[in-house]
Design a protein around this nucleic acid. Structure first.
Lengths: 232, 232
DNA sequence: TGCAAAATATGCTTAAAAACATATATTTTT
DNA sequence: AAAAATATATGTTTTTAAGCATATTTTGCA
């Protein structure tokens, strides 16, 4: 089978963060980045791997998760096209502290960690943009902590559905969540067992808040979901 | 009563992050920072306040916490002398997304938000140091999420005791935690009710893991606490 | 010093979520 | 297409932690 060659947008066309690089830096980087394909559910990086590269998502959807107590996974972030990831560990000179895997087939730019650090050190505007990205990620993480610890099951699940909608939006019909996600992944987002994700989603369906057809979830009453999420 | 004038170390003597500033920047900043005193339990900044300044802790201990569902507070970070805080929100151009208050009387350098941003934009090494600080904070926050969501009560409390020890160390006797903390604060660190913090700490005392004398907590068996923390 | 208020201690009850047990449906493999 | 594997659904039991009640102790303050 012949491999289809697809022309991708340049890295700096994907996001304003990369667009602040100088022409010279862009050309330099262009010769060094690699386009990599990951099939559905492929592992992109794993907790504990030496952090020697970072990625920019061209197309596809990615989950960032941590393996917790007794292998129980917690999804800590969702990524979509143009998001970049893996840089936190590169900056900290750490191993990755989380895993990244593909929700659906992905194309990514893979950037060498040293190259990223070189840009960070030499281009102040770029560094400044990265600081902002981290500042945002940190705020999200702290909110997440409260959501997962203080809300009850229904609140946590409602929160996850809204998070998915905000991140990926709806299909053309205007109400089917654009991420087809297993109940297990939904549980791993919402800090609950798979049983409880299944049960609680069924309840939401019975109450007319959503309708479910396998992994297709239609949101019928987002206001009420928001309400449930707020109350805990 | 005559106010005692205390000479403080210069801001850039406190931490390598600030020491990367140029001589010129140091002099400029020195003329603009303000030393502020906060008495015990004073609120330094509040969730929702416009983020127009950041702080560097000269002496004292600070708790960073978020008000969650139904006013229940969650302590998300502990700070000690030389730590800096409040800059995340300044960078994001946000309001503060958490509260900061003094565990004990504190002296801080108060830095104007615009001044901080000026330094961030003009000094790449400084920006780079701040990126690293954020990268560390983010990793800690994500670990915290797992600790608080997946561990059981005993594991969470043991974790908090170890966190306190790592951050503030022991008194001269080599085993009394150097932070005198109320059971309520301990509960707010560990995502549990005050009742359960009291009860579980008592259990630890009965099991000989710690000894308690009011708010003085002696750690008698740190290895076992670590073990309990790991198991969940 | 003594009183009031706050914090700590402890027992009991209730509610929430996990764990377990099956059954059924869906998807993947053969 | 059939079989196997996986995912979803739903009921039941058990565990965990919250909620509540009430002493008791400690602390702050007049």
């Amino acid at each position: 089978m012949k491999k289809k060659i697809v022309e991708h947008k340049k890295l700096w066309e994907l996001s304003p963060v990369w667009d602040v690089l100088t022409e010279q830096e862009k050309q330099w980087l262009d010769g060094r980045v690699e386009v990599v394909h990951f099939p559905k559910n492929a592992l992109i990086h794993s907790e504990g791997d030496r952090a020697d590269r970072m990625w920019v998502l061209i197309t596809g959807k990615v989950r960032i998760y941590k393996e917790g107590v007794g292998q129980r996974a917690q999804i800590i972030r969702l990524l979509k096209a143009h998001d970049f990831f893996g840089f936190r560990a590169v900056i900290a000179g750490d191993t990755y502290t989380s895993c990244a895997s593909a929700f659906e087939p992905c194309e990514v730019y893979q950037v060498n960690g040293e190259d990223f650090m070189t840009l960070l050190r030499q281009n102040n505007t770029f560094c400044y943009k990265v600081v902002q990205a981290l500042a945002t990620d940190l705020a999200v993480s702290e909110i997440q902590t409260i959501n997962l610890t203080q809300k009850h099951i229904r609140g946590r699940l409602a929160e996850s559905l809204i998070t998915m909608r905000k991140k990926y939006g709806y299909d053309e019909d205007g109400c089917t969540l654009a991420l087809y996600i297993s109940r297990e992944d939904l549980a791993n987002m919402s800090n609950m067992t798979t049983s409880n994700a299944i049960r609680t989603l069924s309840q939401f369906a019975q109450e007319g808040l959503v309708s479910i057809d396998g992994r297709k979830i239609k949101v019928l009453n987002e206001d009420e979901l928001k309400h449930i999420s707020r109350l805990g």
